Computed example of a mutant assay.
Amino acid sequence: MEITIEEFSELLDNKYIIVEAFREHSKASEKYIDVTFVQKDGYTWKGSIPYFYRRTGLFIETANDLVDYLNEIYPHFTKNEIEKFQATEKKRWNDEMSGKKTTKGFFDKLLDLDWNSVKYDLPNNPNWARRIQDIKEFGYTLATDTRRTVKGKYETDTHILLVPLPKGGVTGYEVMSPAFKAKAIAVMESINVYEFSKANKHGLLPDHKFPEIRWDEETRAENPDEMPEKEIKEKFQLVDNQRNQQKREVCRKCFQTGKRGTLYGINFFYQGNENWPDDIPKVGKDAEKGCVGCGWYDIQKWRESLNQFIEENK
């Protein structure tokens, strides 16, 4: 968003919303605006508001849209609304989420709605990032500051803030039951498409061809156990966890840079080239058209197309 804080504040024209900075958490492809909401009774809330946040399908790209969004959410930051949010979510986690003890420990601390240091404030857990991701997938809005000064110390640390906005719903990006996973693996004959082999059947994952980072609220996926075999083959491919993580990183870089990834280091695309098409949106259902032709999107089709290209150009 090419606009200065001064220009944005002038455009916002709201003395009750004080804008301090724009920030970006590049690894998670999240963007924030640091603000202070001042209510007419003097109550204030200070923190970071995500405006590019795929877990709740929020993708604001213009200053005018961000102005509208800040004005829209402003009423959620009164003392009464914040206390209501805390009471509601405390009850929800005690009644419905008590089985998720590890993640609950993180959520309980974050419910103080303050910036919490990963090292000093949150529960001591080497896999803390997984717990934070879980909370996001339950529909909550979290802000991250990777270089925030720790209170009372001369050092910085990653801090997490729970933003008291309405919960987006316990959906996550992919809802995949054990039964569906087993069915998908069977339908695709336990073939690791990256290795083109059945040699190692353990640890295979149904990988959604259309990457999650480009989904929006309308394209979140639920995968019913009764999904037809044809649809499974159209939507998924089998890879192991290592390749699944590698693909996520490739797709994240593509999302951020507009440069599509290569498979095995081979600069071949069966449709288009390395550049994300200018006429294709970055997110949403139509964004899938921009993935077509990339090796990571459909590894088997890419392999077949490359072999055909080699055969025709001998």
Rank of each mutant, 00 (worst) to 15 (best):
W93I: 01
T149P: 06
S117L: 01
D286W: 05
T44E: 07
A63V: 07
D112S: 13
Q246A: 05
N223V: 02
E288I: 12
Y297M: 14
Q39W: 10
K181T: 12
A199P: 00
Y154P: 09
R92C: 08
G295D: 13
L263M: 12
R243F: 12
T56A: 01
T257N: 10
V250W: 14
F106N: 12
D114F: 03
Y264E: 12
F22Y: 08
Q39K: 07
G284Y: 08
N267C: 07
L204E: 01
A63W: 07
G152P: 12
I33L: 05
V35M: 04
N125C: 14
E212T: 06
G152Q: 09
R23K: 08
L113T: 08
E24S: 15
Y74K: 00
K314V: 05
I132N: 08
Q39Y: 06
I213C: 15
N64E: 14
T103D: 11
D41S: 08
P50L: 04
E234M: 12
V193C: 03
P123R: 05
L58P: 03
D34R: 00
K84V: 10
S197F: 06
V163I: 14
D134T: 05
K247Q: 09
G47C: 12
F22A: 03
A143E: 15
P166W: 00
E81T: 03
Y140A: 13
R243E: 03
I17T: 01
I132C: 07
Y51C: 05
I33N: 04
K136L: 08
L204K: 06
K183R: 11
E311Q: 12
Y53C: 09
